[in-house]
Structures are given as C-alpha cells and as structure tokens.
Simulated assay, not measured.
Amino acid sequence: MADQQNHDETDPKGESKFSDKRRIDPETGEVRGSAGGEKAEAEEASADSAGPAASPEDRPGTPDATDEELVELLAEAERDLVAEYRDRAARAEAELKNFRTRVERDRQANREAVIAEVIRSLLPVIDDLDRAEKHGDLTEGTPLALIAQKLRGGFDRHGMHRVGELGEVFDPKLHEAIVQIPSADVEVNTIADVIEPGYALGDRLIRAAKVAVHTPQQ
C-alpha cells in the first residue's frame, strides 16, 4: 500500500528523487495540509482562471460623458439658476411695491382721520356761524363775516362738503331722521327740512345730517 502512494521522480540530471504524496503522515498519523489552505488554493485558482478584474471604463452600462455633454449640463444648470434668481428678484420687487402702496394708503387714511377729528371739533363753531348768518349777523365786510369766510374756505380746501339738502332722497347712511311726516306728494322718503346739516370729508362721514322726512302716505 505504501509503495503505491510513493512515486519516484527523476530530475533532469538523471538522479532519482523520492516524493511522498500520502495525505496521512506515517510518523504522526495527522492529515497533511488544511481545509483553509485548500480553499485558498481553490479561490486563487478560480481568480487566475477568471482573468484580471474589469476596470470601471470596461464595465458594460457605465456612461462615458464627453466634454461637450459636461459643458451642456453646466450651461443648463447655470440657466436654471439665473431663472430662479430672476424669479426671486421679481417677487421681491412686487412685494416691495405692495408694501409701499400699503404704507401710502395707511398714511393717507391717518391723515384724513386727523383732519376729520379736527373738523369734528370745530363743527359747533360752524353751526354758530350758520345761525348767525340766518339772523343776518354776518353782513358783508364785518370781522365776523371775514372769519366765517376764511374758516369755510379752509374746510373746502380739505374736501369737506355739506350733507343733507332739502328735496334729497333720504339715505340712512348719511341722514338721521328726527321727524317723519306722511305726504301724498312723495313716493319715497324725501328730506322735508334740514334741522342740522351734516358734513363729510371725501367719502368719510364726519357727522350725519339731522332732518325731517316726508314719507309716502299709505
């Protein structure tokens, strides 16, 4: 048995060499070699048979971008960025314009509110001048007539006008009905007399007119 597992080898010089290829060592009784070594040898043999690893450039399906494609991609990204910043700038400009409009509108409203409050505080003086004029105390050229003229002129420059005239259609938003008188001569509520005139500054009502109203007779 031992003779079958031993082989004689002859070297190129003609000398005989003895090679013991038995897996079990006759002196120690252990198996020669190891599973790990055999596995490593098998993996190495497999790698050698597979050939060298393919580089990323040689792998199938890997895109190879050219310089022209890269330039086009960069140009497209730049165009998108420019368009985005232009859009942001347009929105910022629109918001600024709206802000300025709101500020100007609020400023104008505050100005009118202040003027309206000043006029409201002076309305009793206007009422007294109207009564004096009805009694003939505001004759032309007198100091009181000059004062009334300047005061009314100042109010007119700010856009103040009277509300409530004889014969106007009654408007509850502008007029306050003190007396209601049925009449066959009217088909809608109509101002019959102005007891106390009202005043408005532009579209802002400062004081409603107190009036007597003719109502349609049933």
Results as ranks from 00 to 15, higher is better:
residue 96 L to F: 12
residue 97 K to V: 14
residue 97 K to P: 10
residue 97 K to F: 14
residue 98 N to Y: 14
residue 98 N to T: 14
residue 98 N to L: 15
residue 99 F to W: 13
residue 99 F to T: 15
residue 101 T to P: 11
residue 101 T to D: 15
residue 102 R to P: 08
residue 102 R to H: 11
residue 103 V to T: 14
residue 104 E to S: 15
residue 104 E to C: 08
residue 105 R to G: 10
residue 105 R to Q: 14
residue 107 R to T: 15
residue 108 Q to L: 15
residue 108 Q to K: 15
residue 110 N to V: 12
residue 110 N to Q: 12
residue 111 R to I: 09
residue 115 I to D: 13
residue 117 E to M: 07
residue 118 V to I: 13
residue 119 I to Y: 02
residue 119 I to R: 02
residue 120 R to G: 11
residue 121 S to T: 08
residue 123 L to A: 04
residue 124 P to C: 03
residue 125 V to N: 05
residue 125 V to K: 05
residue 126 I to D: 08
residue 126 I to T: 07
residue 126 I to C: 04
residue 126 I to V: 14
residue 127 D to R: 08
residue 127 D to F: 07
residue 127 D to L: 08
residue 128 D to K: 14
residue 128 D to N: 12
residue 128 D to C: 06
residue 128 D to F: 06
residue 129 L to H: 02
residue 130 D to R: 13
residue 130 D to T: 05
residue 130 D to A: 09
residue 131 R to Q: 12
residue 132 A to F: 00
residue 132 A to I: 03
residue 134 K to P: 01
residue 136 G to T: 00
residue 136 G to D: 00
residue 138 L to Q: 00
residue 139 T to N: 08
residue 139 T to Q: 13
residue 140 E to H: 00
residue 141 G to F: 00
residue 141 G to L: 05
residue 143 P to V: 08
residue 144 L to C: 07
residue 144 L to F: 03
residue 145 A to P: 02
residue 146 L to G: 10
residue 146 L to V: 11
residue 147 I to R: 07
residue 147 I to M: 13
residue 148 A to H: 06
residue 148 A to R: 12
residue 148 A to C: 04
residue 149 Q to E: 15
residue 150 K to Q: 14
residue 150 K to D: 13
residue 151 L to R: 07
residue 152 R to T: 12
residue 154 G to R: 10
residue 155 F to K: 05
residue 155 F to Q: 05
residue 156 D to F: 06
residue 157 R to I: 15
residue 157 R to E: 15
residue 158 H to V: 14
residue 158 H to Y: 14
residue 159 G to I: 00
residue 159 G to P: 00
residue 159 G to F: 00
residue 159 G to S: 02
residue 159 G to N: 00
residue 160 M to V: 15
residue 161 H to V: 10
residue 161 H to M: 06
residue 162 R to V: 09
residue 162 R to G: 10
residue 163 V to N: 02
residue 165 E to S: 12
residue 165 E to W: 07
residue 165 E to A: 14
residue 165 E to T: 12
residue 166 L to S: 04
residue 166 L to R: 12
residue 166 L to K: 11
residue 168 E to V: 01
residue 168 E to C: 03
residue 169 V to T: 12
residue 169 V to Q: 09
residue 169 V to G: 10
residue 169 V to A: 09
residue 171 D to A: 03
residue 171 D to V: 01
residue 172 P to G: 07
residue 172 P to W: 00
residue 172 P to K: 09
residue 174 L to R: 05
residue 174 L to S: 02
residue 174 L to D: 02
residue 176 E to S: 06
residue 176 E to F: 05
residue 179 V to Y: 04
residue 179 V to F: 04
residue 180 Q to N: 09
residue 181 I to Y: 01
residue 182 P to H: 01
residue 182 P to M: 02
residue 183 S to C: 00
residue 183 S to G: 00
residue 184 A to C: 03
residue 184 A to P: 05
residue 185 D to R: 08
residue 185 D to K: 12
residue 186 V to R: 01
residue 189 N to A: 09
residue 190 T to N: 01
residue 191 I to V: 11
residue 193 D to V: 03
residue 193 D to I: 05
residue 195 I to L: 14
residue 195 I to S: 09
residue 195 I to C: 06
residue 199 Y to M: 09
residue 199 Y to Q: 07
residue 199 Y to I: 11
residue 200 A to C: 07
residue 201 L to I: 11
residue 201 L to A: 05
residue 201 L to R: 06
residue 202 G to S: 02
residue 202 G to Q: 02
residue 202 G to K: 03
residue 204 R to H: 04
residue 204 R to V: 04
residue 204 R to A: 06
residue 204 R to K: 13
residue 205 L to H: 02
residue 205 L to G: 04
residue 206 I to R: 01
residue 207 R to N: 04
residue 207 R to A: 09
